[in-house]
Simulated assay, not measured.
Amino acid sequence: MEQKSKRGLQIGLAVSASATMLFLMSNRSTRNRIVGGTKKTAGTINEVSQFLSENREEIISQLRESSNRLSELLKSASADVEQISARAAHLKETTVHVKETTQQTARDIKNLKESEEGEESKQLESNSNVEKLPTGENMSS
């Protein structure tokens, strides 16, 4: 079944292409436009071909120069990326070191505060056991 539909499609395309060609060839103004367009295209291709052959060396040297400049730019960009990467790694190391130092400082302050609170409570306990001496206010009563 598929072969019949493919075959029918091929026959239909061939018939329509033939009909189109017959119409184009029988119509004089269409034929003139096709011939004129073809001549114009051929002329343009000849001009481009001639320009390329006359300026071949200059075009090749410009391409080489552009290629060399592009290569230099890529090398420079590669070096810049390496530098940025190295600086980023150094910045990461420094940041980690600052974080660790800050955490250690916070622990040290917490320990110092806890030890001071412990000493203050010991002093308060020892002070509560001390008998108060009479002061000027207590003597007059």
Rank of each mutant, 00 (worst) to 15 (best):
R69G: 15
G37C: 00
T41M: 07
M21L: 08
I59H: 08
I45D: 05
Q62Y: 14
G37A: 01
S141V: 09
N68A: 15
T105Y: 03
T101G: 01
S126W: 00
L73P: 12
S18E: 12
V35R: 03
E2T: 02
T44I: 02
T38P: 02
A86N: 13
T30N: 05
T102F: 10
Q104V: 01
N32C: 03
H97I: 07
T101V: 02
A19Q: 03
T41Q: 09
V130T: 15
G43M: 03
A77N: 15
T20N: 03
V96T: 08
E137H: 03
E125G: 11
E114T: 01
V96N: 05
S5I: 13
N129T: 12
L24Y: 00
R7E: 13
V35S: 07
L91D: 03
N55G: 00
L24E: 06
E131D: 12
E119W: 08
I109D: 03
G136L: 11
E116C: 13
T135L: 06
E100K: 13
E125H: 11
K132E: 15
S121E: 07
S26R: 04
K132A: 15
I59R: 13
A17T: 03
T101A: 11
S53F: 00
N68T: 12
N111Q: 09
S141K: 09
S29N: 12
T38V: 07
A89P: 02
